[in-house]
């Protein structure tokens, strides 16, 4: 609020504003409280939308309670008929995060830090990947070669370590960026340790996880056929929503073939800090994979088999 020379001036201004509001020319339902952006150490944080930002609710607690039962952007309030500044900025921030999750690549630093080798698909660029949905389902020539190198090498390492004659990896984990690189960076470091530790504790052999760049769900079929493993687990970035840019899915397939269809897959979605925490999902997947190996199937068949 501006500084006024005296009380009289302020009263005049306020009465004019009140008149304008009646005629709809001045922001009506706007109050003083903003979305509650916190400034820490001189840095402005994103406005919070966990709490209502409308100012003159008949029952504020009720709106607060409504926000507890939905993530929908309600209780926003308005200025005239438009969104208030902070919720509008937050919307843009969430959309930016979602777009960046899709259009940016998983960083090389991340892959290096997590010991993940990259396998390429026929979609050489993000643009190809988005425009030609089939390209991301097929490995490139080079990708196939590299897959064999890494995974066969792994079998040998396994034999050395355990001095057993198991010559096959039972479970191959692939990590595909899909429609969210952000999901990969956010969840993989948390989901892999309990997953690998759990599978090994259960006596299941696991191949070295690899990263499939510009990969889609169905690329797992080719991986499975190339390697001859029992189960392929594809940890893949989901199409981001606003505020869920880091959500990841886990697709599982038992011994895929050319005839494999979508109903043959088992899917666990919504893996991220705001859904099923990745570290918990990792432990859950261990149980699921044990079921799959026991019943030797996935998808609709697995649901039937366990009935």
């Amino acid at each position: 609020m501006a500084n006024y020379q005296n009380d009289m001036e302020r009263m005049i201004v306020e009465s004019v504003l009140a008149e304008l509001r009646k005629s709809g020319a001045a922001p009506a339902a706007c109050g003083n409280t903003s979305g509650g952006s916190v400034i820490e150490d001189g840095v402005i944080n994103l406005p919070d939308i966990d709490h209502p930002t409308l100012t003159n609710a008949k029952n504020y607690a009720a709106v607060e309670a409504m926000k507890q039962v939905t993530n929908a952007r309600i209780g926003l309030g308005r200025c005239g008929t438009r969104q208030r500044t902070d919720t509008w900025l937050r919307f843009q921030a969430d959309h930016a995060a979602a777009m960046d999750a899709v259009f940016l690549d998983v960083s090389d630093d991340f892959l290096k830090a997590n010991n993940l080798e990259t396998i390429t698909t026929q979609a050489a660029t993000k643009d190809d990947f988005l425009r030609e949905p089939n390209w991301g389902t097929r490995l490139s020539e080079q990708g196939i070669k590299k897959l064999h190198e890494i995974c066969q090498q792994d079998t040998r390492i396994h034999e050395q370590r355990f001095q057993t004659t198991i010559n096959k990896v039972q479970v191959q984990i692939i990590i595909a960026d899909g429609l969210s690189s952000r999901a990969i960076e956010a969840n993989i470091p948390e989901i892999l340790p309990p997953l690998v530790q759990g599978l090994e504790a259960a006596g299941i052999t696991v191949g070295t996880p690899v990263f499939v760049k510009n990969g889609r769900v169905r690329v797992m079929d080719q991986v499975g056929m190339e390697l001859g493993c029992d189960v392929v687990l594809n940890l893949i970035g989901e199409r981001p929503g606003l505020g869920t840019a880091s959500s990841m899915s886990a697709y599982l397939i038992y011994r895929p073939t050319k005839e494999t269809v979508e109903a043959d897959r088992t899917l666990i979605s919504n893996i991220y800090a705001g859904g099923t925490p990745p570290v918990e999902a990792g432990a859950q997947l261990v149980d699921l994979i044990q079921d799959i190996l026991k019943y030797q199937c996935t998808g609709v068949k697995l649901n039937e088999a366990t009935k």
């Binding site: 309600i74 926003l76 308005r78 008929t81 981001p240 606003l242 505020g243």
Partner: peptide, 19 residues
């Protein structure tokens, strides 16, 4: 609400836009 369909994960006209 707020243009954000939390179930279908896409953006559409908001209640505000309607008004």
């Amino acid at each position: 609400p707020g243009g954000d369909d939390i179930m279908l994960n896409y953006q559409d006209t908001t209640y505000h836009d309607d008004a």
